[in-house]
């Protein structure tokens, strides 16, 4: 049974692609056969974050148009077993994706035995985002702790609730969970950022995890390594936790309060 998961946010730049790459890698590390699809046609990024940009031959638009088959197009990740990347086209625009075409791709991935398909949605609430979300069984909504991002997430939640196949077939609302990224406990304490509780209260969906604002994320992007593989970093660990919660494990939240450096921390420079 394949589970299709859309990673959405409404607003751009909040960490959708970072999250798609991290969660897909996390699931593959747990042994699930996972595909991650870049739906951001025209603004392809996932291949960079996954470090496979030099191996892109075909893309999802080629598959939909019948120029290439899925097996030729899928890129097998070199670091992580069970992980496959379906890149977006950089030269086309989002109208090149059709619901029928995407439906066929997802069906074919499912026949290949994928257990999870992670759909990295483009920003916005237009056709591109709707196409990415259409076949989803559940959603991860990525939000930054600031009002504009939270409002856009609220908007996308409303859209996810009504404009997916699940909703159209009357199977009820799409289950959605919140991933709060770029969280800075220091700034929350100073009142410069919304707290976890504030955001959860506004969006009223279960919390999947909190990813701290971290240099590791940028370093990982630049290096083309999903940050979850940087297991010594706070962001990497937070994504490992989020993956575990995604799979139903119950873990306490980390990185949500200001770390007070203890004696040992001071000694070793924490």
């Amino acid at each position: 049974m394949t589970k299709v998961v859309v990673v959405a946010s409404g607003k751009g730049g909040v960490g959708k692609t970072t999250t798609s790459a991290a969660i897909a890698t996390g699931l593959a590390l747990r042994g699930f056969k996972t595909a991650v699809i870049d739906f951001d046609v025209g603004l392809r990024n996932l291949d960079l974050i996954m470090g496979c940009e030099r191996r892109v031959v075909y893309d999802i638009v080629n598959v939909i148009n019948g120029d290439a088959n899925l097996r030729q197009t899928l890129i097998k990740d070199k670091r992580t077993e069970n992980l496959y990347i379906l890149p977006a086209s950089q030269t086309r625009d989002k109208d090149a994706l059709t619901i029928e075409g995407v439906g066929k791709v997802i069906e074919e991935l499912s026949e290949m035995g994928m257990e999870y398909i992670i759909c990295d949605s483009p920003a916005g609430i237009e056709k591109g985002a709707l196409t990415a979300a259409y076949f989803a069984d559940e959603a991860i909504v990525v939000t930054n702790p600031e009002v504009s991002s939270v409002r856009d997430s609220d908007r996308i939640l409303g859209i996810l609730a009504s404009k997916t196949r699940r909703a159209e077939e009357g199977q009820g609302e799409l289950p959605a969970r919140l991933l709060l990224s770029r969280y800075s406990a220091e700034r929350v304490e100073k009142g410069e950022m919304l707290s976890v509780d504030d955001v959860v209260e506004i969006l009223a969906i279960p919390l999947l995890g909190v990813i701290p604002e971290s240099e590791a994320v940028l370093n990982a992007s630049n290096a083309g390594t999903p940050v979850i593989l940087d297991v010594d970093s706070d962001a990497g660990q937070a994504y490992l936790d989020a993956t575990a919660r995604f799979l139903g494990e119950d873990l306490p939240l980390r990185f949500v309060s200001v770390a007070k450096k203890g004696f040992l921390g001071r000694l070793f420079g924490g």
Binding site: R151, D154, R155, G158, A204
Partner: peptide, 26 residues
């Protein structure tokens, strides 16, 4: 019973009861 999200509209010809929150922009 669900939250009314930003961008959603609800119309009632009679009374309207929302058991949850109504987002900015709804």
């Amino acid at each position: 019973e669900q939250p009314v999200r930003s961008g959603q509209q609800v119309y009632s010809r009679g009374d309207l009861i929302v058991m949850s929150s109504v987002g900015t922009g709804a």
